[in-house]
């Protein structure tokens, strides 16, 4: 049961990156599951025989979201988000997928009270020994995060360009 729980967490976290048009297709979900299981095998091998990859802030290459995580976490910040926050860590980066359509009430009201949950996540990333944290905010929640984005420089964040999937 514990192993099944781990797989569920991994699959649910990774499924947050499924494109909407594929979420309802049985065949796509099967290939998604196979993909994750196969890649997790590679990830486990890498953990047994670790290869050091240089960290770079300039590109996505070293910390792609598409690489499976080494650790998966369900984070719960009930004062700020109603839903569980799905997270994963690779070697350097703590990936946090904020619940869609469910941002904190403070965010929704546009009150600059984003610091608390951000600080909590930064502290957690630090505790986990991560160099950086990537926060994935649903585009359909853009209105809710506009205040947050306006203050980005002030809070020391930067926007990461989307991956060139065609490339």
């Amino acid at each position: 049961n514990l192993v099944q729980l781990y797989w569920d967490i991994i699959l649910l976290t990774e499924s947050k990156f499924l494109l909407p048009q594929y979420r309802q297709q049985q065949q796509s979900l099967k290939s998604f599951q196979k993909y994750v299981v196969d890649k997790m095998g590679v990830t486990l091998n890498r953990m047994v025989k670790p290869v050091k990859v240089p960290y770079s802030r300039t590109g996505n290459l070293n910390t792609p979201w598409r690489q499976l995580g080494i650790k998966y976490l369900m984070v719960y910040l009930p004062l700020h988000f109603k839903d569980v926050i799905w997270c994963k860590c690779d070697q350097f980066c703590f990936h946090v997928i904020l619940p869609q359509n469910n941002a904190s009430s403070a965010l929704r009201r546009g009150i600059s009270n984003d610091k608390e949950w951000l600080l909590s996540l930064l502290e957690l990333g630090d505790k986990l020994g991560m160099q950086s944290i990537r926060i994935y905010i649903g585009r359909d929640d853009f209105n809710g995060v506009s205040t947050f984005l306006r203050n980005l420089n002030w809070i020391g964040g930067r926007l990461v360009p989307n991956e060139n999937r065609a490339g």
Partner: peptide, 16 residues
Amino acid sequence: DLIFGDENYIILEFEC
């Protein structure tokens, strides 16, 4: 692989 995408998200990065 092509059924995954980060188009759904705005991605912000912070140093810990």
